[in-house]
């Protein structure tokens, strides 16, 4: 079939051939029309299908995201009462007397702070070593694969590994030791340490990226002023990478907030925060987070109080969305720009 595309799809701009005095060569409509090519855009049928599919997929994702937020907001606001945020969970057969989720909320914040406090210094140190030293290169490659392995390990595996490690008797100071010497292994400290491993690859990744975008001549300018590597890292490179470090830390906090497996295995089964006696008792004690609260109250858990699960899930979702918002705010802050 031969279609003259110029008449089939009249465009606003006259192309070659539309003017009889135009010296440019005329297009050959019969050939290109047979090949399914429009002269308007030059897109083939396959490309057009792909484009439509990309649009549909993109919009569907927006629909999914919006329905998560809207559904959780609908359920959450329906069941959420302010006193839930201020009362501790209680064990009771009567749902009206089981209290709120103050302890899980505080537990989430506490665990996030502990995890980030471990992850940021360690992650920044690893990133600085990899980008600024990285020698011998074999060791650097080994460190990189180590980071990848940690990043790829499922959190339930990290959790069970953590339990194995922290139940050793010499790890007793991090948790509760029963009479007879058995180490419980579960506490905010031990869960926080494993949470740090979840955040670590994110901190390392974004710090490395930030350090790599600093041009070499900026480092050399510092050396050329008589500064050694240590002060260059401390006074020039780390301040320049500040927003990258903050991005990694915030992403890591989002991941820690949302992780369930480590909490269920390493933070104990009690919904209430239960500090140990003695030094740093709160950190050595057990507790819960919003994720374990949702899990325990969901129809899958023992509590079977989905109302409270929805309310807590909504609060958790708000926290994570807020953290993502902070990430994009940090990204928009003007980072140092060199040519």
């Amino acid at each position: 079939m031969s279609i003259d595309v110029r008449t089939a799809a009249p465009g606003p701009r006259p192309g070659p051939g539309s003017d009889p005095t135009d010296p440019r060569p005329k297009p050959k409509p019969s050939m290109s029309a047979a090949a399914g090519i429009s002269h308007e855009t030059g897109w083939s049928v396959g490309d057009r299908v792909g484009l439509v599919a990309a649009w549909v997929c993109g919009i569907s994702l927006c629909v999914v995201a919006a329905s998560i937020v809207l559904f959780m907001a609908w359920k959450g606001i329906q069941f959420l009462h302010l006193d839930m945020l201020t009362t501790s969970p209680e064990a009771s057969l009567d749902q009206s007397k089981t209290g709120g989720f103050l302890d899980p909320l505080v537990g989430t914040l506490l665990l996030t702070v502990i995890g980030i406090a471990f992850a940021v210094p360690t992650g920044v140190a690893i990133a600085v070593w990899l980008t600024e030293y990285g020698r011998p290169s074999g060791l650097a490659r080994l460190v990189e694969s180590g980071v990848e392995i940690v990043a790829g390990t499922p959190s339930i595996v990290l959790a069970i590994f953590g339990l194995l490690v922290f139940q050793q008797s010499f790890m007793g100071i991090f948790s509760f030791t029963a009479e007879g010497g058995a180490v419980f292994g579960r506490s905010f400290l031990t869960a926080g340490a494993m949470m740090a491993l979840i955040a670590l690859p994110l901190v390392i990744g974004s710090t490395r990226e930030a350090l790599n975008t600093i041009p070499r001549h900026v480092r050399e300018a510092s050396y050329a002023l008589g500064k050694d590597k240590a002060s260059t890292i401390r006074r020039v490179l780390l301040p320049s990478a500040r927003s990258g470090i903050a991005t990694g830390a915030t992403l890591g906090m989002g991941r820690i907030c949302g992780d369930t497996a480590i909490v269920v295995i390493l933070l104990g089964a009690s919904m209430q925060t239960t500090p140990e006696s003695g030094f740093l008792g709160l950190f050595r004690g057990t507790g819960s987070t919003l994720t374990s609260y949702v899990y325990n109250n969901s129809p899958a858990g023992e509590g079977n109080a989905p109302d409270k699960a929805y309310a807590a899930a909504f609060v958790l979702l708000m926290i994570v969305i807020l953290l993502n918002f902070v990430v994009s705010l940090i990204g928009k802050r003007n980072k140092p720009q060199w040519n």
């Binding site: 050399e220 300018a221 510092s222 050329a224 002023l225 008589g226 500064k227 006074r235 320049s240 140092p336």
Partner: peptide, 28 residues
């Protein structure tokens, strides 16, 4: 480091450090 403070250098691209004007000059 002593040599480099006696023999200064300027680069192709302007490369002030991400700090204040005062701190840049005072850096060395």
């Amino acid at each position: 480091t002593q040599l480099r403070s006696r023999v200064g250098m300027l680069f192709q691209q302007p490369n002030p450090f991400p700090m204040s004007i005062f701190d840049n000059v005072a850096y060395g």
